[in-house]
C-alpha cells in the first residue's frame, strides 16, 4: 500500500500480552478510507483484542495506533463507532431510551437524531418494548444504531452477524453496504462466516496466533482463488527451482511442503511433467483445481501458507 493513501487505521507492531501470552503480537494493519475491511482469524487469534485496543477498551503493551493519520487517538476515537462482541444495551430500557442515554453522553443537541438512527436501522416501530426482550438481530441492530449515533467516519464491528438467522444476516449485510456506499463510512468487520464476509469486504486482514499473516484486497483475493494446477512432489525445493529457472513460471505458491499450486500455463501439463521428471522429481499428483473463497480463507487461517505469488 502506497504512502500517499489515506489510512483510517494504521497500527505499528501493536502488542497485547495477557498472562505472559501474546494475544496480539506486533500486528501492523492498514485500513484505507472507504474500505470494508474483513478481519479474519480463528477463535482466540487476536481479532477482538486488536479491535478492543483500537477502540480504547484495552491498553496495548507495545506498538502504536494511528487513527485518521493522527496519533492523538483519544481525540480521534470520537470519530469511530464500535460494536465489540455483544452490544452494550440497558436491558430494562427501550431502544429509544438506550439511544437517548448515549445521545446525552455525547452531547448531541439534535434530539431527532435518535428517531433518524432508529429508522435507519429499522427499529423505529419498537415502541416501549424493552431491549432485553429484543431478538438477537434487533439487539445487533440497536448496537449498530448506538455506534452510528455520532455519525462516525469509521465503524469497528466485531462479529456483528453472530447468532443471526439467514434473514438477519442479509439485513445486516444490506445495512453495512448502505452505510459504506451512502454514508461513505469505512468499516472494519470481523466474522467467522467467511463466505458472507467475502460478499461485502473490499480488503482483508488474516490474523493467526496473534500475528497478522496477510493483508490483501478483493482483487488480489479473486486472483488467488482462480484455477490452478496442483502438484504433489517429493522434493519441493528442487521442483520450485525447475519451475522458476527452466519453465519460467512465476505465479505459483507452496501452501505446504510437497504441494505446489501453479496459476499459469495451466494447459501445459506434459511440459511440466517432462521437466520435473527429467530433473528426478517424483510427481505423485498433478491435476487442475479451483478454490472457492471459503476454502481459501480456511487455508490461510489454518496453515502457515507461504504465498509466493500474488503478493502485489
Amino acid at each position: 500500500m502506497g504512502k500517499g493513501e489515506n489510512f483510517v487505521l494504521k497500527t505499528e507492531k501493536l502488542t497485547k500480552i495477557y498472562d505472559k501470552k501474546r494475544a496480539v503480537n506486533e500486528v501492523s494493519i492498514h485500513v484505507k478510507q472507504g474500505e470494508i475491511y474483513g478481519f479474519i482469524g480463528k477463535n482466540g487469534a487476536g481479532k477482538t483484542t486488536l479491535m478492543r485496543m483500537v477502540s480504547g477498551l484495552a491498553r496495548p503493551n507495545a506498538g502504536t495506533i494511528e487513527l485518521f493519520g493522527q496519533t492523538d487517538i483519544e481525540k480521534q476515537r470520537a470519530r469511530i463507532g464500535t460494536l465489540i462482541e455483544s452490544p452494550g444495551l440497558y436491558r430494562g430500557m427501550s431502544a429509544r431510551d438506550n439511544l437517548e442515554v448515549v445521545r446525552r453522553a455525547y452531547g448531541i443537541c439534535d434530539k431527532s437524531v435518535v428517531e433518524h438512527t432508529l429508522s435507519f436501522v429499522g427499529l423505529a416501530d419498537t415502541g416501549k418494548k424493552k431491549a432485553g426482550n429484543f431478538s438477537m438481530g434487533m439487539k445487533q441492530r440497536l448496537g449498530i444504531a448506538i455506534a452510528l449515533l455520532r455519525s462516525p467516519d469509521f465503524l469497528i464491528l466485531d462479529e456483528p452477524i453472530n447468532g443471526l438467522d439467514p434473514q438477519g444476516i442479509k439485513q445486516m449485510r444490506d445495512l453495512l453496504l448502505k452505510l459504506n456506499r451512502e454514508k461513505n463510512i469505512t468499516i472494519m468487520i470481523s466474522s467467522h462466516i467467511l463466505g458472507e464476509l467475502s460478499k461485502i469486504a473490499t480488503a482483508y486482514g488474516i490474523i493467526r496466533d496473534g500475528r497478522l499473516a496477510e493483508e490483501f484486497d478483493s482483487a488480489q483475493l479473486a486472483r488467488r482463488c482462480r484455477r490452478c494446477r496442483r502438484l504433489l512432489v517429493d522434493n519441493t525445493e528442487h521442483a520450485v527451482h525447475i519451475l522458476e529457472e527452466e519453465l519460467h513460471i512465476k505465479e505459483f505458491d507452496v501452501p505446504e511442503n510437497g504441494i505446489i499450486r501453479i496459476y499459469e500455463q495451466l494447459e501445459d501439463t506434459s511440459r511440466i511433467n517432462r521437466s520435473l521428471t527429467l530433473a528426478g522429481i517424483n510427481i505423485r499428483e498433478n491435476y487442475l483445481a479451483g478454490q472457492d473463497l471459503e476454502s481459501y480463507f480456511m487455508e490461510l487461517v489454518e496453515n502457515e501458507a507461504t504465498v509466493k505469488s500474488g503478493k502485489e
Binding site: 483519544e74 464500535t82 452494550g88 444495551l89 440497558y90 438506550n98 453522553a105
Partner: peptide, 18 residues
C-alpha cells in the same frame, strides 16, 4: 455495576471521553 453487566460501558469508554 449496571454499565458493566450490560456492557454499556463500552459505549462511552474510548469515545473521546476521559
Amino acid at each position: 455495576i449496571s454499565d458493566y453487566r450490560s456492557g454499556a460501558v463500552k459505549n462511552f469508554v474510548g469515545k473521546g471521553i476521559r
